[in-house]
Design a binder for these strands. Structure first.
Length: 574
DNA sequence: GCCGTTTTCGGCCCGACTGTTTTCAGTCG
């Protein structure tokens, strides 16, 4: 799928440039839509376009198809090359600042000669941006806040991107000189929501050859270091360069090296302290007593020698896992294979790209027992939210698909909007006919959010709150919500909170999940998919759930179909 | 840019919020 992603990135880039240049908004969104489709396609464009006649991809017409073919043949899109010459490259980057849009960027470039982020900071500081027509003090303050937010998370990449890069490199390394073992380490192995550098550990004999092979990885833009035990490369992505570090250790050191490089720092400090108290020394090379190596081949040994059970990487944050491990109190963390269904999916009835039939087939393929179709409600116009009539039409389609697929239970669901005035976007008489209702905020992020969510939770037909804090990891903090209060109320009512698996949300976060578990709140994991490929994102939700100490019993989509239906019915009765 | 069961041209992404401009422009979801 590499080409798909490359072309998607170029289309997005083109959309950004056209937007700043004031091109027709529909044209811009056509590029964006095509990019999104490409990102989520489960087939290579190369493959699709090599067939005659080429298979049709929705949202990609004559013009875009031509550009894709051009890229596949020449590695370039001439339209993009031309457009790039028309504006300074640094301007595109500014679009990712929340509160700053294409019009303001164009104006700042035109009137003040702003070419990049440095210029932008300068004109904010010297006050000249404030003097621009239409930009008052508050707006400029908002932009400054946006810059600060962006800088805070600068350089970190999403779990999804890091996972994809690491998988690709691991596959590549397996084809090179012989290696005994290979594993991601660091924050990626701990499944943190964002990742700094990507760390990979290899056990092998000939370090030099392996590092050489690593530095020849086709995606490499820059080799930072290349020795006999460690190599560092940069990989270019549309959003910036990603650093990947690879270390080669001997098979006898693999366990201790993996433990050491997985971290977290806080976890390792505590582990080393325990070792010290026992007269031992732990380093990446092994566990030593008086300079005599007594362990290091397997990671399990490192923990066992300290009287601890092996601790899953996702827990290694020094949040009580070491103490729990010592007394046999580690949780039995949920596994991806425990998941019996997906509880948040959009179909092409609203803003999804896949039909209900396609979604159901994919769910069957994943081995699920049930799947919920949760399209947007009527007010979410930008996402083609369903009026009651279209929702009822959808039920007919669900019933039709259900007849063809008795092997899976299709839940009639909705992601109903919590409106600004606190009301829900569908009447109770409609909600009560649904099997699965998740309520969500998509408007009024600063308006009594806590009260509105709690009010929604109290509606007898609402089962859960979707993405409860509303954060977008790469773009914004969440709503102004007192999440502790929401968790408390959900606990009291016996309602669920969602863990949204979409890689830029992962909401609730690991720490909030821990709180929810403590309050006895059941979690519903949903991928928020807009196409069938999105269903694969369940892995990121499960990773976050594991970081939140969640077990099978804490997650309602680990329930068998009957138990789930019983659970939902009991909630409705209240 | 795409798309077509009234259209091959003319819709498509509408509405809320915010700040600022007293009647609207820009941004966002």
């Amino acid at each position: 799928m590499k080409k798909n992603l490359e072309i998607a990135a170029l289309f997005n880039q083109l959309a950004d440039i056209l937007e700043i240049r004031g091109e027709l908004p529909f044209k811009v969104s056509a590029y964006r839509k095509a990019a999104r489709t490409l990102e989520n396609l489960d087939k290579n464009v190369e493959e699709i376009f090599s067939q005659t006649p080429a298979q049709k991809i929705p949202g990609i017409g004559e013009g875009l198809e031509k550009k894709i073919r051009e890229y596949l043949e020449t590695g370039k899109i001439s339209k993009l090359e031309e457009e790039k010459k028309k504006i300074p490259v640094g301007l595109v980057d500014l679009l990712s600042i929340p509160g700053l849009g294409p019009k303001t960027i164009a104006k700042a470039a035109d009137k003040l000669g702003v070419k990049n982020i440095t210029d932008l900071k300068r004109v904010i500081e010297n006050g000249s941006l404030t003097n621009l027509f239409g930009l008052g003090k508050k707006k400029v303050e908002g932009i400054l806040k946006g810059i600060q937010f962006r800088e805070k998370q600068h350089g970190r990449i999403t779990l999804r991107e890091a996972t994809e890069i690491a998988n690709e490199i691991i596959e590549y390394m397996k084809k090179g000189p012989k290696i005994k073992e290979i594993s991601p380490a660091g924050s990626l192995r701990r499944k943190k929501e964002t990742i700094g550098d990507i760390d990979i550990i290899v056990a092998a004999k000939d370090g030099e050859k392996i590092i050489q092979h690593f530095c020849n990885f086709p995606g490499t833009s820059n080799v930072i270091a290349s020795g006999t035990t460690k190599g560092s490369i940069l990989i270019e992505s549309p959003e910036g360069s990603r650093q990947v570090d690879l270390r080669v250790v001997t098979p006898a050191e693999f366990g201790s090296a993996l433990q050491y490089f997985t971290g977290s720092k806080e976890h390792n400090i505590k582990i080393r302290n325990i070792a010290k108290q026992k007269g031992l020394k732990i380093s990446e090379y092994g566990v030593f007593r008086d300079d005599k190596k007594i362990a290091g081949k397997k990671e399990e040994e490192v923990y066992e020698i300290l009287g601890l059970r092996w601790i899953p990487p996702e827990l290694r944050e020094d949040r009580g896992e070491i103490e729990a491990s010592g007394v046999g109190g580690l949780p039995e963390l949920v596994e991806l294979s425990d998941i019996k269904g997906d509880l948040h999916i959009h179909s092409n009835f609203s803003d999804g790209n896949s039909s209900i039939e396609e979604i159901v087939k994919k769910a069957v393929k994943l081995g699920y027992s049930y799947v919920a179709i949760t399209d947007h409600s009527v007010s979410v116009k930008y996402a083609n939210g369903l009026e009651p009539e279209r929702l009822e039409k959808q039920w007919e389609e669900i019933s039709r698909v259900q007849r063809n697929h008795p092997e899976i239970r299709i839940l009639k669901g909705t992601e109903v909007d919590i409106l600004s005035d606190g009301k829900l976007d569908y009447p109770d008489s409609l909600l009560e006919k649904l099997d699965w209702v998740i309520a969500a905020i998509h408007q009024g992020f600063k308006k009594n959010v806590t009260e509105r969510i709690i009010f929604a939770l109290r509606n007898p037909h609402v089962n859960a709150v979707a993405h409860p804090t509303g954060r977008l990891l790469s773009r914004r903090e969440g709503y102004e919500v007192d999440i502790d209060k929401v968790i408390e109320e959900a606990g009291k009512l016996g309602k669920c909170l969602e863990l949204n698996s979409y890689y830029d949300r992962l909401d609730l976060s690991d720490q909030n999940l821990m709180k929810a578990k403590k309050a006895g709140v059941k979690i519903a994991i949903g991928t928020d998919s807009h196409d069938i490929a999105g269903l694969n994102q369940m892995q990121f939700g499960v990773g976050t759930a594991r970081r939140g100490w969640l077990e099978k019993k804490d997650i309602i989509n680990c329930f068998e179909t009957e138990a789930l239906e019983k659970f939902l019915k009991s909630k409705k009765a209240k």
